[in-house]
């Protein structure tokens, strides 16, 4: 059952995109969307994606809301920096050791960090497992490390591991 769910997630997602694009729920479009979704998934298997566990939906929802709130907050912070820059602000790189292993978790973390204004993912060393990010306003490295590890990494591990 769970296996079936896992295999039908991607076609269902592609079908939803097709239906959104056509703005209709007509039976013909649903059939066409299902066929296209299946075909798209078959094409994607050529990429040989690494196996991952099915994320826990409730925890994923909680993380999503947290990220949305953070994006809104840092939008305001960065807008303030652009309009009225304080002379004491200094940008810089921060290095953060990570324990997250799942490739999907790392990809999600990369998107979260970069989509939040004020922080950007620069590099991840897969041997020493140290992540480098660039932040617009580096007050104290400790705070950024705690934010990334405590907020996002903990949630992602909860969801995926």
């Amino acid at each position: 059952m769970i296996r079936l769910l896992k295999w039908s997630l991607m076609p269902a997602f592609l079908m939803a995109i097709w239906l959104l694009l056509n703005q209709s729920l007509a039976p013909g479009q649903i059939v066409l969307g299902a066929v296209l979704g299946g075909f798209g998934t078959w094409v994607l298997t050529a990429l040989d994606p690494p196996a991952g566990k099915l994320p826990r939906p409730l925890a994923a929802m909680r993380l999503f809301l947290l990220v949305v709130a953070d994006i809104v907050r840092s939008n305001i912070l960065v807008a303030r920096i652009i309009w009225r820059d304080s002379p004491g602000r200094r940008p810089g790189f921060v290095r953060i050791p990570l324990e997250l292993r799942s490739p999907y978790g790392l990809a999600a973390l990369a998107c979260i960090i970069t989509a939040t204004p004020g922080t950007i993912w620069v590099d991840f060393d897969s041997e020493s497992r140290v992540l480098t990010i660039h932040v617009l306003s580096l007050v104290e490295e400790r705070i950024w490390i705690d934010t990334i590890k405590g907020r996002y990494e903990r949630h992602l591990r909860e969801i995926l591991e």
Partner: peptide, 9 residues
Amino acid sequence: HAPTLGTTL
């Protein structure tokens, strides 16, 4: 960091 403002919120 700047254009992220326009593309997110």
